[in-house]
C-alpha cells in the first residue's frame, strides 16, 4: 500500500453520469491487480472528510484509470477536478480477484451499473492467462452503458433500450439455458441485491463465483472497522470489506 499525490491527466464523461478519471500514478499503477481499489482523498478540506473508494478500471503504464458516477458530495466534488489538479491516493488496496485458479477455463464477468468498473483490467489479465471471457452487463438504459475494453459483451437494460429488457441475472439465465460455458467461473461486481441474485444463480448451477462488493468504507485499510461484511462462517461473523475484500468467494457471504 502506497500513499502518493497523483496529478489528474484527464476527466471525461463517457456515459450518462459516468466519468473516467485518469491519474498519473507511476508508483501505484504497476502494482494494481484486477479487483483491487484505491481510496482517494477528494480534497484537503474536512468536507467531505473521508476518502472515497474506487475500483481500478484500467492501468496503462503509469496511467491509472477510475470510473465513477456522481452519487453524493464526494463524487460531485471529484467530477469538478481539472487536468493538473492533484489527488492524494492510497493504494492499491484490498484482495484481488483469484484469476490464477486452474479450475476454470471460461470467466463469466457479470456487472451491474458501475459494477463494470473492475472488468476491463480483469479482462486483460484473463486474456493474458489464456482464459475465455464472456461479459454480461446490466444497466439502467442504453445511455448509461460503458462497454469499452470488454469482450464478448451481452447486455440487459431496465428499460429495454439496449439488449434484453430486464436484469443482468435474467440475461445470465437466458444465456445459460442455451448452453453452459466450459468450466465456468463467475466474477461479479455491482449493487448488493444484484450480487445476491448472482450468488444464488451460481449456487443453482454449481459454478464457482467471486463477487466484488461495494459499500461505504472509512479508512480503506482495516483500521476503522467500519465496513463489516457478514459471513456464513460460525467462527468468524464479520470480514472487513476493505481488507478481507472487496472480492469474496460468494459462498462465504451471508446474503
Amino acid at each position: 500500500m502506497l500513499q502518493t499525490s497523483c496529478p489528474v491527466l484527464s476527466l471525461t464523461a463517457v456515459a450518462e453520469n459516468v466519468f473516467l478519471l485518469v491519474l498519473d500514478a507511476p508508483e501505484i499503477a504497476p502494482l494494481v491487480r484486477p479487483g483491487q481499489f484505491l481510496n482517494v482523498r477528494i480534497d484537503e478540506t474536512s468536507d467531505p472528510l473521508l476518502r472515497r473508494p474506487f475500483s481500478v478500471y484500467r492501468t496503462e503504464g503509469n496511467r491509472l484509470e477510475l470510473l465513477f458516477n456522481v452519487v453524493g458530495r464526494g463524487t460531485h466534488a471529484l467530477a469538478e477536478k481539472r487536468k493538473g489538479d492533484r489527488l492524494d491516493v492510497l493504494g492499491p488496496l484490498g484482495v484481488p480477484f483469484t484469476l490464477d485458479d486452474p479450475g476454470f477455463t471460461t470467466a463469466v464477468l457479470v456487472a451491474g451499473g458501475l459494477g463494470v468498473a473492475p472488468m476491463p483490467i480483469t479482462t486483460r489479465e484473463l486474456l493474458l492467462k489464456g482464459k475465455a471471457v464472456r461479459t454480461f452487463l446490466g444497466a439502467r438504459n442504453k445511455g448509461s452503458l460503458v462497454t469499452t475494453h470488454l469482450v464478448q459483451v451481452e447486455i440487459a437494460t431496465d428499460d429495454g433500450s439496449e439488449g434484453l429488457r430486464g436484469t443482468v441475472v435474467d440475461l445470465l439465465e437466458r444465456a445459460f439455458a442455451s448452453g453452459v460455458p466450459a468450466r465456468p467461473k463467475i466474477f461479479a461486481c455491482g449493487p448488493h441485491p444484484m450480487l445476491k441474485a448472482v450468488a444464488a444463480f451460481a449456487v443453482r448451477f454449481d459454478i464457482p463465483c467471486e463477487v466484488s462488493m461495494e459499500g461505504p468504507m472509512g479508512c480503506g485499510i482495516g483500521i476503522c472497522q467500519g465496513c463489516p461484511v457478514e459471513l456464513t462462517n460460525p467462527a468468524k461473523k464479520y470480514a472487513l470489506m476493505c481488507k478481507d475484500g472487496p472480492t469474496f468467494d460468494a459462498r462465504t457471504i451471508r446474503w
Binding site: 474536512s46 468536507d47 467531505p48 472528510l49 473521508l50 459499500g215 461505504p216 472509512g218 476503522c224 472497522q225 467500519g226 465496513c227 463489516p228 461484511v229 457478514e230 461473523k237 464479520y238
Partner: peptide
Amino acid sequence: REGNPPPRIVETTGGMLNSI
C-alpha cells in the same frame, strides 16, 4: 468481540458517526 452489524459508520458534515 465481533462488533456491531453494518452500517457501522456514516460521514456527517466535517465528521463521522461510528458504532463499531
